[in-house]
Structure formats: C-alpha cells, structure tokens
C-alpha cells in the first residue's frame, strides 16, 4: 500500500520535470550548438571510416609527409599513414577513454566527496585516503599496476580491450581526488543551509536529501570537473602511450598524434592542427553541454 502511493505520487511531476528540463536546455543556444558539435564528432569517428575507407595503419612510404590532397584530405605522416584515417580511428579510442575515464573518476569523486562531506564520521578517513592518493607518485604506481594486471587482463579480454580497461581504470583511480575535495567543500557549505535542516526536520530520508537537495546544489562544480576531466583524460592517455604504458603504438589516439606531430610542426603543420582541434572541439562542446545541463537542472532556475 505504501509502496503504491510512493510509486504513484511522483510520477506525473517526474514526466513534466523531464520535459521542463528539456525545455530549459533548448533555450540554451550554446548548449544546443555544443550538443550538435558533439554528436557530429561522435558520428564522424564512428561512421567516418565507412566513407573514408583507407586503413589507418596502411603504410605508403612513398607518400610520406604530404600535404592535403584528394586521396589524403589531411595529408600523411612521416611513415605515409593517412592522417584523416588516423584521426578518425584515434577519435574512437580517445573519446571512449576520455568519457569512460572521466565518468569513472567523476562517480568515484562525487561519491567520496558527498559521503565525507555529509557523514561526519567518515570525513576524516576518506579525506586522509584522498591525501594518500594525491601523494602517490603516478609513474611508479602505473608501472606497478601494469606489471601486476596487464597480462591477466590481456589473457581475459584480449590485447585491445584489456589495455582499454587498464587505462580507463588507471586514469579513473588517479584523478578522482580533485573532484572529491571540491564536492566535499561544496557539500559542507550546502549542508549547513536552512533548507537542508528543514528537510531533515521534516523527516526526509538521508539519501533523498542527498539526491534532491545536496547533489543539485553541487552540480556546477561537478560539471566543471567533468569537462576538465575529459580533457585531462585524453591528454593523460597520450602521456601513458608515449611512456610505453598505454595502447600499443599502432593504435593511434588524438593525444598521441599531437605528441608525435609536435616535432613535425614546421614540416607539416596539419599533423598538429587537426588532432589539437579535435581535442579542443570535443572539450568545448562538452563544456557548453555541461553548462546547459547545469542551467537546466538548477533548482532555482526551475522555480522561475
């Protein structure tokens, strides 16, 4: 009986809430453009290879270091790889790594941040754990993780998926601390405000208070962390690759293309412009998307 009422009661407002959020979102021009650009990038890297069918690992040594041409719209690198094909293939990996790793670190960070901000008993231990993770030297940590888990994952999931899981995991668990500290700070500030006390005294369950009142109020910091998180995940992945701790060298990624191209800046500028643009555009579009989502979810905006 109680189940039925609780389940039935919030239903109509929930539907209109979604619609209202979408309505808010649509009003946000930047957000719409961001959404379009993001969808375009995703479509390009997933559908693009069916249109531009050159194999990204095809080597044509006679056609190395070429500028743009009909056959190679973005030119070729110093081994004669087609740059467009490389960027499309690199985009699939970079986007997948960037978004999954960012989500992982965001979920971890938010979880730790909210718990330690909200539950006083857990604040000390969780924040000391955060201090520990902040202090750990990244490179030796990576070397150890890779030494311990690479072969196991390779055996279980194959070389590509295995490395993918490893990299997402590594980036995720080494980048959640900032989000956690920031969210905790916000939660501490929000927690002491009147409406939370009111909700508490009205007998609202703790987890509902967190979901309904705390989370929406710390959303904007989380969104900023998310956009910055995608960028740093893409860059960190490239750092791992060129240290020999990431994907094998025949898996192009945006960060790696940018790194390899940096020395060829004067010979073939398109080798750095395109991957650099791809990373920047992705981050920009996610940023505007994040802005729009935050505005749409803002409880005070809805009230207006």
């Amino acid at each position: 009986m109680t189940d039925a009422t609780t389940a039935a009661a919030p239903q109509p407002p929930a539907r209109s809430l979604t619609r209202e959020i979408w309505g808010q979102f649509r009003k946000h021009t930047g957000g719409l453009i961001g959404l379009c650009v993001f969808i375009f990038i995703v479509l390009a890297v997933f559908v693009g290879p069916y249109i531009h069918t050159i194999d990204p690992n095809k080597i044509d040594i006679r056609a190395k270091n070429q500028g743009p041409s009909v056959l190679h719209p973005l030119g070729t690198d110093n081994l004669g790889h087609d740059m467009l094909a490389q960027i499309l293939a690199g985009g699939r990996i970079s986007l997948a790594v960037g978004i999954t790793a960012m989500l992982l670190s965001l979920v971890l960070g938010t979880l730790v941040g909210v718990i330690s901000g909200y539950i006083k008993k857990l604040d000390g231990p969780l924040m000391r754990l955060t201090d520990l993770f902040l202090a750990l030297p990244l490179l030796p940590l990576l070397l150890v993780i890779i030494m311990l888990f690479r072969d196991t994952l390779r055996a279980a999931f194959g070389p590509e998926t295995g490395i993918f899981i490893l990299i997402v995991f590594v980036i995720g668990i080494t980048s959640w601390m900032h989000t956690a500290r920031i969210v905790r700070g916000d939660v501490l500030a929000v927690k002491s405000q009147e409406f939370i006390l009111a909700a508490k005294s009205s007998g609202m369950r703790e987890w509902r208070i967190v979901l309904r009142h705390i989370l929406p109020n710390v959303m904007s910091s989380i969104m900023v962390s998310a956009t910055l998180g995608i960028a740093s995940a893409i860059i960190t992945e490239s750092a791992l690759s060129f240290l020999g701790l990431g994907f094998p060298s025949d898996f192009p990624t945006w960060g790696r293309l940018l790194f390899d191209g940096a020395n060829f800046l004067q010979i073939n500028p398109s080798r750095v412009i395109w991957p650099g643009l791809a990373i920047s555009l992705t981050v920009l579009s996610v940023n505007y998307l994040g802005d729009a989502v935050r505005d749409a979810l803002d409880p005070r905006m809805l009230k207006r």
Binding site: L258, A262, I279, V283
Partner: peptide, 30 residues
C-alpha cells in the same frame, strides 16, 4: 554570463586546458 567577454573567456580557457603543454611549449619556442 554569455556576454562576448564570457564567450571568449570560455573559448580561450577551454582551448588552454585541452591543448597540452608539450604542444604549446614547442609552438612558443618555434
């Protein structure tokens, strides 16, 4: 918010954050 100053600021800071230092460093040296 959403003024020209804000838009330019957003653009520059997003590009500034997403282009790694190993690249900006080389560009500035060149």
């Amino acid at each position: 918010q959403y003024s020209i100053f804000d838009q330019i600021g957003t653009f520059v800071s997003m590009v500034g954050f997403s282009v790694p230092t190993f690249f900006t460093g080389v560009v500035l040296i060149v």
